[in-house]
């Protein structure tokens, strides 16, 4: 089925997207006139200070929030249709594993809900556990694992049902730098191996530049896109690439974009 789709087809498309939250202090413009196209196989990072709407945009794609204006399509459908069609896997800031289920049980949960056969479930759980290098930990309970391992398990859970799109909301924000580097490398490998489209929210400039084919810089109040950078880095990226000239130049441009976004309100 996948082969019939052209490689550059548009997976996520936002046109003049607006979202206004009604709060006790009056309306808050969380997203303003957001225009963005994400193509199949892209690795897109969203970076910006808190309140810039990067998480909100991701939640709109997932149909966990609903835009108040503009148009948003996911795989050509509305976000709600895409959610019911199980078009994406979502990885949250915290692992959010259910403590009464084992690691394998947690990964099996979406498969049970989606009605995969028992044999298929077991096969998929084993495969994704292997993919995130957690084979042998399936029978452990979440609280028996380190934070990094829990987050890997939550990635495995998002991969288990083979959605084409992976939405990741600061998945490594709570982890220390060494674990984060390792998981960044693993995510790149996963992406190369599975060919999924990834939308990745982060606070970290090096993380955004290292991972992405496209970097979306956002600025706050109201949340909007201030720069979109297409990365010239090759798809194959060893960790050392972070010391290269090109890498530093892109990081510089991201930093400039972030600073410009902040300048508006001063």
């Amino acid at each position: 089925m996948k082969d019939e789709v052209t490689p550059m087809s548009r997976v996520i498309e936002a046109r003049d997207l607006n979202l206004v939250f009604q709060t006790a202090d009056g309306p808050v413009q969380a997203l303003k006139d957001v225009n963005l196209t994400i193509n199949r196989g892209d690795f897109v990072s969203f970076i910006g200070p808190s309140g810039c709407g990067k998480t909100t945009f991701l939640r709109c794609i997932a149909a966990l929030e609903h835009p108040t204006g503009g148009r948003l399509t996911v795989n050509g459908m509305t976000p709600d249709q895409a959610r019911m069609a199980r078009a994406y896997g979502y990885v949250f800031q915290a692992a959010g594993l259910y403590p009464w289920r084992t690691i394998a049980g947690n990964i099996r949960l979406p498969l049970e809900i989606m009605g995969f056969s028992k044999a298929d479930q077991e096969e998929r759980v084993a495969r994704v556990l292997d993919l995130v290098e957690l084979s042998g930990f399936g029978k452990k309970f979440p609280w028996q694992l380190s934070g990094g391992m829990q987050q890997r398990a939550s990635i495995a859970r998002a991969l288990a049902f083979d959605a084409d799109i992976l939405l990741m909301d600061e998945p490594f924000g709570a982890l220390d730098e060494i674990v984060r580097d390792r998981l960044n490398e693993e995510v790149l490998k996963l992406w190369a191996r599975t060919g999924k489209t990834v939308a990745f929210v982060t606070h970290s400039i090096p993380e955004a530049v290292y991972l992405s084919t496209k970097i979306v810089v956002m600025s706050p109040r109201p949340g909007r896109i201030s720069d979109v950078i297409d990365s010239p880095l090759p798809r194959e990226r060893p960790l050392e690439i972070r010391d290269s000239r090109e890498f530093i130049e892109i990081a510089h441009r991201v930093r400039e974009g972030l600073r410009a976004g902040h300048g508006d309100e001063l």
Binding site: R86, Y90, F92, Q93, G96, Y98, I113, F161
Partner: peptide, 24 residues
């Protein structure tokens, strides 16, 4: 909230979400 959001991302219905998440 995150646990409930996860259920929503998998397109779980009310009873599935009740049985597999909220009752436990």
């Amino acid at each position: 909230r995150m646990q409930r959001d996860l259920m929503a991302t998998w397109g779980a219905g009310y009873w599935q979400s009740l049985w597999k998440l909220r009752l436990p």
